[in-house]
């Protein structure tokens, strides 16, 4: 575990390979919920929580169940099942413990099950932090940290996008590019500016 590796995980998952603008994961929720800032923030926080916790769970599952029994080909099925049931569990827990929080976050939770960012990060962690089926040193910490950073990157893109789209309401744009097409074009311009980060060297 070293500082350079941690820093490079942070920079690459928040800016360089931003989960939305460069890896294109979680686009459906990105375009559907970024019309206003408040729900966008709530959705981002929920996504961040689920990505972080599910990266730990899937790491443990992979390390202690799939690798020892030589079942790594079941990765996709087992990961998606665990994520889906975990999200369902969180939804029930939140509804029971705090109804007011459920009203803010709860409605977004079922959507997160099919958010590709969650499964994408789980698969990515396994691809990056396991070499020949063996966990590299500090692998669990890296996975956890990458989960948090991808969540941060998601939040950043979501907040920027929702801020822009709120203002877009007041602008006259051609009818045929209204809503989705213009959102894509804006995202493209945002992606261009994020490409500027790729000049950094470590």
């Amino acid at each position: 575990m070293n500082i350079a590796q941690i820093l490079s995980i942070f920079i690459s998952s928040v800016f360089l390979y931003n989960v939305i603008l460069s890896r294109f994961l979680g686009l459906c929720s990105f375009f559907a919920i970024s019309k206003e800032t408040k729900p966008a923030l709530a959705m981002s926080l929920a996504v961040m929580f689920v990505i972080t916790t599910s990266s730990i769970i899937t790491w443990l599952l992979y390390r202690f169940l799939l690798v020892p029994f030589n079942l790594t080909y079941l990765r996709t099925i087992s990961f998606i099942l665990v994520i889906a049931s975990f999200v369902q569990f969180v939804e029930m827990a939140v509804r029971k413990i705090s109804p007011s929080m459920y009203r803010v976050f709860g409605i977004y939770l079922p959507l997160i099950t099919v958010n590709c960012a969650v499964l994408g990060v789980a698969v990515l962690n396994v691809d990056m932090f396991f070499v020949d089926g063996k966990a590299i040193p500090g692998s669990l910490f890296y996975s956890l940290f990458q989960g948090i950073c991808v969540g941060l990157g998601y939040t950043l893109a979501m907040l920027l996008m929702s801020g822009i789209r709120e203002r877009l309401e007041l602008v006259q744009i051609p009818r045929s590019v209204k809503d989705l097409p213009i959102a894509f074009i804006i995202a493209s311009i945002m992606g261009l500016s994020f490409m500027g980060f790729s000049g950094f060297k470590f």
Partner: peptide, 25 residues
């Protein structure tokens, strides 16, 4: 080269979506 980079993908799809909704109109 921008068109094979991520930003180009978003631009191409945005314009195509706009084009198809124009056709529909």
């Amino acid at each position: 080269a921008i068109f094979i980079l991520p930003a180009g993908a978003l631009l191409v799809i945005g314009l195509l979506l706009g084009f198809f909704s124009l056709l529909k109109e």
